[in-house]
Design a protein around this nucleic acid. Sequence first.
DNA 1: GATCGATCTGACCGATCGGTCAGCATCTGA
DNA 2: TCAGATGCTGACCGATCGGTCAGATCGATC
Lengths: 189, 189
Amino acid sequence: MLVRGVTGMARVVPETRDEILAAAARRFAVSGYRGTSLQDIAGEVGCSKAAVLYHFANKDAILTELMAPAIGMLQALDERIAAHSGAAAQRVAGEGFVDLAVRFRREIALLRGEFPELLQQPAFAHIQRISERLIEALAGHPERPAARIAALVVLAGISEACGEFADIPDEELRPALLALVRRALEPVD
Amino acid sequence: MLVRGVTGMARVVPETRDEILAAAARRFAVSGYRGTSLQDIAGEVGCSKAAVLYHFANKDAILTELMAPAIGMLQALDERIAAHSGAAAQRVAGEGFVDLAVRFRREIALLRGEFPELLQQPAFAHIQRISERLIEALAGHPERPAARIAALVVLAGISEACGEFADIPDEELRPALLALVRRALEPVD
DNA sequence: GATCGATCTGACCGATCGGTCAGCATCTGA
DNA sequence: TCAGATGCTGACCGATCGGTCAGATCGATC
């Protein structure tokens, strides 16, 4: 590593592990997961590729750790949705997903465009089921194609556009997305 | 190549070139552009990788040819939008984009998640400018953040969800998307 | 001062990628 | 009959990928 703390002070600089996570987040956001190599991350941190693989078992482990908080909130949302039905489930799903998107928009942006492939990995397998239930709840009338289409577009649109929202403050983004979701989804009678 | 026409008949089987295009479209739709190798395409056609590169200068050329009709329609839409302003531009943009998405949803699905990287290629550079103008027109009030957010989500959502619409007939998909766009976008006073 | 675990490095591995190339059939037109 | 264009193949290339490994460095502990 480069000079860490000119004097003998202990813990002057954050751990290399944290630097790797931060660097990976930056690069994933710019070039996507597959578009970022371990060498890219190592170069940004200023260490060797082997050092990255000393702190993380493999490349997937870095992404998994970055996404863990967002995935946790998604699972919690799924359980809250399951406790409701009809219009209540739609409201919980809509507001909950907006909260999730606002809070973790930077993390969601890391997956930009790689949802389908990444979701096929065993580590993310359950997320696919959760998102299907999310779409059902958002649609309100899952058997009505137009309602499913609206839910799909809203879900995919917010997820995919998260990368563009990085500079918008929470208190501005949240009401805008909430209003959009309420307008776009078909109401449950 | 495999046996082409048991008898001596001429042109019994479609050209290998067309088979390559069709196979590439199928594989790109399943695994994305970067997730599909020339070897994958060759394997599906039943020819060698070198045969693929005999018919196409490189991998990009295959995607460019697959996307050419959709890109043409997008450019035409851009010109029609430029001829209007305010509420009229918003209506032209919304209806035009829905038409484009319905007509070319299979082609748009090929780009699933690879928009950002692919758009940085010189061949697709102008598309980025077009989509920015499209967002402005859809937003109606480009200076109002909530309006831009709605336009962004609708545009990204429809583009990203196109892959799920393959089996929905045009006459069902079009009115559903049109109604969604009209509900979701902020009206221009 | 010897030991030991934590941290990190450079060299290396096999696999895969997009792409090139010389040459082999096959067909066609002179 | 033969020359040339067309279509295609297998072998090969350099680059890059994720990942492994033996060993160097170093601070803390006994």
